[in-house]
């Protein structure tokens, strides 16, 4: 089974802050991590590879330092890593990103399954996985928490608002994976040393030979209007001692915060 896993290196959300003057996300202090649900996507792919055999290729689009995230994925069991990196791809929105990734997967040749995280923590649109499926013209199984191969079919459990839907679909397919789908494994020293030795492949604009106005900022129809920090609402706070609870209840009743019930 030929499997592609799409991952993105994102800044650790705990280390991002909003620049209070320019209202932009300051990511300079944040370390790069694999987007959390992409780790679940890789884990889901690894489990299928372990069950039915196959080869996993990691594809990521991003700056050169995203190499670390790809090496980490290979350290967990992926076989090959490709980083799509070029200045002209910068500032792409989800449309241009999906198009570029789809072009890369097409160039890769035949595939059975493409796995992607449900959404990223840095923009959270959830567009890119489904977008790639659309550009490639293949079916998609989204929001999965469990996937397995039975015969020629992929069985996917989709976590929806009103329950879990079990679907059966025929590859080639794109599958998006939820953050609660599984517990991602750690990389191993053996596999990581091998991954560093093997290295990753870097593909640029020339490799993909897409028209320049299809990629990066030029190929992006989305415009970000503004980014605002909502004002923090100051709440009254008070520390109450045990014996003061009756007074507190009276005060809350008086202010209409709680009612005494009855009528």
């Amino acid at each position: 089974m030929k499997i592609v896993v799409m991952i993105k290196q994102v800044p650790d959300a705990e280390e991002i802050f909003i620049d209070p003057v320019k209202f932009t996300l300051n990511r300079s202090q944040a370390r790069g991590i694999i987007n959390p649900s992409d780790e679940n996507a890789l884990e889901a792919a690894l489990r299928i590879k372990e069950a039915v055999g196959g080869e996993i290729t990691i594809i990521s689009m991003g700056p050169p330092q995203a190499e670390n995230a790809i090496i980490e994925c290979m350290g967990r069991g992926a076989d090959r890593g490709i980083l799509i990196t070029d200045r002209v791809f910068a500032a792409a929105d989800t449309y241009a990103t999906s198009l570029t990734l789809a072009a890369a997967i097409k160039k890769l040749g035949e595939f059975d399954l493409i796995f992607a995280g449900e959404s990223t923590t840095d923009s959270g649109t959830g567009h890119v996985g489904p977008g790639v499926a659309e550009f490639l013209g293949i079916d998609q199984v989204t929001y999965t928490i469990n996937t397995k191969i039975e015969g020629e079919m992929l069985i996917g459990e989709r976590e929806l608002e009103d329950g879990i839907e079990v679907v059966s679909a025929r590859p080639p397919l794109l599958v998006t994976v939820m953050i609660n789908a599984n517990i991602p494994r750690h990389s191993s020293l053996r596999k990581k040393v091998d991954a560093i030795r093997k290295g990753i492949e870097k593909w640029d604009h020339d490799t993909l030979s897409l028209p320049p106005d299809w990629v990066g900022l030029k190929g992006s129809p989305t415009l970000v209007g503004a980014l605002k920090i909502p004002e923090e609402r100051k709440r009254a706070s008070k520390i109450i001692k045990l014996e003061e609870i009756p007074d507190l209840v009276n005060e809350l009743v008086k202010n209409g915060v709680i009612s005494t019930g009855g009528d």
């Binding site: 980490e72 350290g75 750690h186 990389s187 191993s188 020293l189 990581k192 040393v193 560093i196």
Partner: peptide
């Protein structure tokens, strides 16, 4: 060869 994120 630098490997991070792995515990011996």
């Amino acid at each position: 060869t630098l490997v991070t994120g792995v515990t011996v």
